[in-house]
């Protein structure tokens, strides 16, 4: 049963990665693209977690943690760049 749920989760997350990618490509303005990148990062963390469950290897969670941190910092940096024109004052 876990195998079926894992395949379902892979399909759903892959589909949502494609949808976020579409918004990244189409996005009418720059903030939509930042939001799409943020969603891509969050979905990527989900994908890594599901992969970690299916392989049973613990090391993937460290990478999920690091990607979560980098994703947050990059989103804030992009938004701040749009707001102020520079990142570190």
């Amino acid at each position: 049963m876990i195998q079926i749920a894992l395949v379902f989760a892979y399909v759903c997350i892959g589909l949502s990665l494609i949808l976020a990618m579409w918004r990244l490509w189409k996005g009418p303005n720059v903030i939509d693209r930042v939001l799409a990148l943020d969603t891509l990062v969050v979905n990527g963390i989900g994908m890594i977690v599901v992969f970690g469950i299916s392989t049973g290897v613990e090391t993937y969670f460290e990478s999920a943690l690091i990607i979560a941190m980098l994703g947050f910092v990059s989103t804030v940096a992009y938004a701040r760049f749009v707001l102020r024109g520079n990142i570190i004052e």
């Binding site: 049963m1 876990i2 079926i4 749920a5 894992l6 379902f8 989760a9 399909v11 759903c12 997350i13 589909l15 949502s16 990665l17 949808l19 976020a20 579409w22 918004r23 009418p28 303005n29 903030i31 939509d32 939001l35 799409a36 969603t39 969050v42 979905n43 989900g46 599901v50 469950i53």
Partner: peptide, 28 residues
């Protein structure tokens, strides 16, 4: 097994709904 499968399915559905909303809603 049932609990893990349910948590996986709920998580996957919510992730998909989030990205679907990102594409569907037309106001920034």
């Amino acid at each position: 097994d049932i609990l893990i499968a349910v948590a996986l399915v709920i998580g996957a559905v919510f992730t998909l709904v989030g990205s679907y909303g990102l594409v569907k809603i037309d106001r920034p």
